[in-house]
């Protein structure tokens, strides 16, 4: 019974990854990833460099074959999903041909999808119809990104995958990019984007999936992931305290000490504070704050905390 329900959930899912493993020699790039994304979700795949984000993205698109595990996009194998046009992707690298114009680039992709009329439409959608005649080699970084975004939209995919879409974009271009993304997702499309910008995950994703060393270490809404790292951060100037002394305070889980200024991660900040003031009456400029996503990210992704 349980199995049937699970199977139904997977069958209705936009994306379902189960037991994904991929190693390159000694390195386990993906080490047992399970992930189900429901239609309409906007999910951020968050993690430091080398966490396995790009490998996971490649596998779900069928660009790389997993050593073991299953991938289904709307219940279909990646290649079938590509053939039916239900998945579109913006890959990480600048992969545009420098001597080909923007218009030709989209015309080629549209022709290969058997939908030549989509070339002009997607250029309008991505706001690049004004530069259709320019060669891709002459474009700015932001323009290139938009061309690659347009390529991903050609087949009108219900599931859009973006691998580090805004890397190397300046702030304004990034804002515009997410603006067009919002327009796209407002029509109920599913999006998965890999990023290492926490602010983007926080602002644009309904759900955050954190990867570290090829594994999912946190999965939930931004609020849930934040609370997964229990506790708070205590900051104080503590004259004369050594790192060992501070680390020995009750409930301290992490410590950073620079020029007498300490940042303590605490499971129970009240207890830590009482002990701190008892041991170091001269401590001052004390601040206590709930962890933000960045702290959660650092706590969850750093090796030391495992």
């Amino acid at each position: 019974m349980t199995k049937t329900i699970a199977a139904q959930a997977v069958a209705g899912a936009a994306l379902s990854l189960s037991g994904l493993h991929k190693r390159y020699g000694e390195i386990r790039a993906v080490d047992g990833v399970d992930l189900t994304i429901a239609p309409g979700e906007v999910v951020a795949l968050l993690g430091p460099n080398g966490a396995g984000k790009s490998t996971t993205v490649d596998i779900m698109l069928g660009l790389s074959r997993p050593d073991s595990g299953e991938v289904a996009i709307f219940g279909k194998a990646p290649r079938e999903a590509v053939l039916s046009g239900s998945v579109g992707a913006m890959l990480q690298k600048d992969n545009l041909r420098a001597d080909v114009t923007v218009g030709e680039t989209l015309a080629i992709v549209a022709a290969l999808h058997g939908r030549p009329e989509r070339a002009a439409e997607t250029m309008r959608q991505a706001g690049i119809d004004g530069i259709a005649g320019q060669k891709c080699g002459k474009l700015s970084g932001g323009q290139k990104q938009r061309v690659r975004f347009a390529i991903a939209l050609v087949s009108e995919p219900d599931f859009l995958v973006l691998d580090e879409p805004t890397v190397a974009m300046d702030v304004e271009i990034r804002r515009q990019f997410w603006q067009s993304m919002r327009e796209y997702t407002s029509r109920g499309r599913t999006v998965l984007f890999a990023t290492h910008y926490l602010a983007e995950a926080e602002e644009f994703a309904d759900r955050v999936v954190m990867l570290r060393a090829g594994r999912v270490i946190a999965d939930g809404t931004v609020a849930q992931v934040r609370s997964a790292v229990s506790g708070r951060t205590l900051r104080a100037v503590v004259p004369g305290a050594s790192a060992d002394q501070l680390a020995g305070l009750p409930s301290v889980t992490g410590l950073e000490l620079r020029d007498g200024r300490a940042v303590l991660s605490c499971a129970d900040s009240d207890r830590t504070l009482r002990a701190l003031l008892a041991a170091f009456p001269a401590a001052h400029d004390i601040e206590i704050a709930a962890v933000n996503l960045e702290d959660a990210f650092l706590a969850l992704t750093s090796e030391e905390n495992l």
Partner: peptide, 10 residues
Amino acid sequence: GWQRQLRLTP
């Protein structure tokens, strides 16, 4: 990497 992009077409 253009070939990778083409592999995302039919």
